[in-house]
Simulated scan of single mutants.
Amino acid sequence: MKKILNLLLIDDHPITIDGYKNILETLHATKEIYDYNTDESYCCETAFKLIENKTYDLVLLDISLPPSKDGMFKSGEDLGQFILKRHPKTKILVITSFNDPILLNNILHFISPKGFLYKGDINVRLLSEAIINVLNGNTYYSTLILNLIQKNLSSRIFLDVMDKQILYQLSKGVKTVDLKKTIPLSQAGIEKRKRILKDTFNTKSLDDSALIRAVIEKGYL
Rank of each mutant, 00 (worst) to 15 (best):
I4H: 04
L5F: 04
N6A: 13
N6I: 05
L8S: 08
T16P: 08
D18V: 04
Y20K: 04
K21T: 12
I23L: 12
A29L: 13
A29G: 07
A29H: 15
A29I: 11
K31A: 13
I33T: 01
Y34G: 14
D35V: 12
Y36E: 04
N37C: 12
T38A: 11
E40M: 11
S41H: 12
S41E: 11
Y42I: 11
Y42C: 05
C44R: 00
C44D: 06
E45M: 07
A47N: 03
A47C: 05
K49N: 11
E52P: 00
N53H: 14
K54A: 10
T55D: 10
T55K: 15
D57R: 00
L58T: 10
L61Y: 00
S64V: 08
L65C: 09
P67A: 05
P67E: 05
S68F: 01
S68E: 09
K69Q: 12
K74A: 10
G80I: 03
G80L: 03
I83H: 01
I83Y: 04
I83C: 04
H87I: 06
T90S: 06
I92A: 08
I92C: 04
I92S: 07
I95K: 00
T96Y: 01
T96K: 03
S97L: 13
S97A: 15
F98M: 03
F98S: 01
N105E: 13
F110K: 11
S112T: 13
K114S: 14
F116K: 12
Y118E: 09
K119Q: 07
G120M: 04
I122Q: 06
V124T: 15
L126I: 15
L127V: 01
S128H: 00
S128Q: 10
E129I: 11
V134W: 08
N136F: 05
G137P: 12
N138F: 12
Y141I: 08
S142F: 06
T143F: 13
I145H: 00
L148Y: 11
Q150E: 14
N152D: 15
L153C: 12
L153W: 11
F158K: 10
F158N: 09
D160Q: 09
D160H: 08
D163S: 09
Q165L: 10
I166A: 02
I166C: 02
L167H: 00
Y168W: 13
Q169N: 14
L170M: 08
S171Y: 00
K172T: 15
V174W: 00
V174P: 00
T176Q: 14
D178Q: 14
L179S: 02
I183Q: 02
P184D: 06
S186H: 06
Q187S: 14
A188D: 12
I190N: 02
E191Q: 06
R193L: 09
K194Y: 09
K198Y: 07
D199P: 03
F201Y: 06
F201G: 03
F201N: 01
N202G: 06
S205I: 07
L206R: 08
D207K: 10
S209E: 15
L211F: 02
A214I: 09
A214D: 05
V215M: 07
I216G: 00
E217D: 15
K218H: 11
Y220M: 13
